[in-house]
Design a binder for these strands. Structure first.
Lengths: 122, 122, 122, 122
DNA sequence: GTGGTCTAGACCACT
DNA sequence: GTGGTCTAGACCACG
């Protein structure tokens, strides 16, 4: 994972998004242990407090559970994870549509742009 | 236009995006006059300084020009506008693809999600 | 308001509970401004970060709204406030009943204890 | 007994409260043997150190006695137990009253809430 | 070792 | 002035 220190997107938010994506996409399964706050902080070269804040906010959303002295774990609830995946994808799609439409594109044109861009990447 | 005060997106940036979209989509043509800073501030119920900052940043990108005593105007350069439109749409599409793929969706699935969401809005 | 620095109850939680009570009991009405983070921090003689954390958590629960540069305000939603009051009182009562019953008291005995204790305070 | 790992209440404290309640309510009589530390640890799926800490703290309050090689036993002193029961119930009632009143309820309303909640549980 | 709380203080963004 | 983010570092609680 790569942190962008320069951007306006807060670091703790970048961490949240990264971990959330890992969970929602299944790379981190239910019950799996996240890296410890201190370790991740060392790896990303940020302050442990920053990692802690990210973990705490995910806990507020019931995505992870933490046990003092043990660590932080992905929630056991498969439902919760799937729900989050749906939620995230809907948010992403809705925001995209809203933006692209205010630029004057129709859904069809948006799909064309998507296919073009996708091919380029290949 | 509706300002979201609660979000992390700064107000001045929301204003920039709004005006940019109006320009890039053609709602605001080349040379057309933007609302005066004070008037827009009153309409949006924000601080005039905030509008000023938004206008200033757009000027830095050569999208608008400010003429003392007259007001702020969209650039006359059609090329500049089209360039901006392309630039914006590419950014939007690229970001969307990056996000949706990190959730584990393929381009095809992304298009399906798009069509679903688009129908709902109708 | 008096902070207990010695206890195990975290300071930020004491602040949350205090403000919540003020809101739920109507002492702080909808839309009313909370003391600024820095000011409350000075008054309570705690670090501004500690106050901020308290405010942030209340914002996550939609009890308050913050506007950068302006301050933090009680939510305008009267419904939300009443809901919170009901929620809080139910939690309090449920916990009390659970505790007192596990000591072997019936509801009737609990009420008696309550009346005794209440008279003493008078 | 069910341990809540997620809450802010430490596990050893939850164990103490549980055992205390059993003693104060008479489920565990004077001189009776507590489950061995290891057995309780296995049952609750917690670290034996955690149980040990709970037992130690209760010993400090003269509620239990530990005899090397034999186990841990409820104190023989009936007086001590009754005293503890009174002490606990008073604390519980006082805290309840303090909380419910700061929400703006009178003692009478508190009693009503209590009766409502109590009926629901039935 | 793990996470939790708190402080002091810096710097930024916004009104 | 307001709130937001981040760091460095201390001390505590838990397993």
């Amino acid at each position: 994972m790569v942190i962008q220190y320069d951007t306006s997107r807060p670091i703790y938010r970048q961490i949240i998004e990264y971990i959330m994506m890992r969970i929602a996409s299944g790379h981190l399964g239910p019950g799996e242990k996240l890296p410890s706050q201190r370790r991740l902080a060392r790896e990303l070269d940020v302050n442990p407090n920053t990692v802690q804040r990210a973990y705490r906010e995910m806990e507020n959303q019931d995505l992870v559970e933490t046990r003092r002295g043990l660590g932080t774990f992905v929630t056991e609830s498969d439902t919760k994870i799937k729900e989050k995946r749906r939620e995230l994808s809907q948010e992403i799609v809705a925001e995209f549509l809203q933006q692209i439409k205010s630029l004057g594109y129709s859904t069809e044109e948006a799909i064309e742009l998507l296919e073009e861009c996708s091919e380029e990447v290949q």
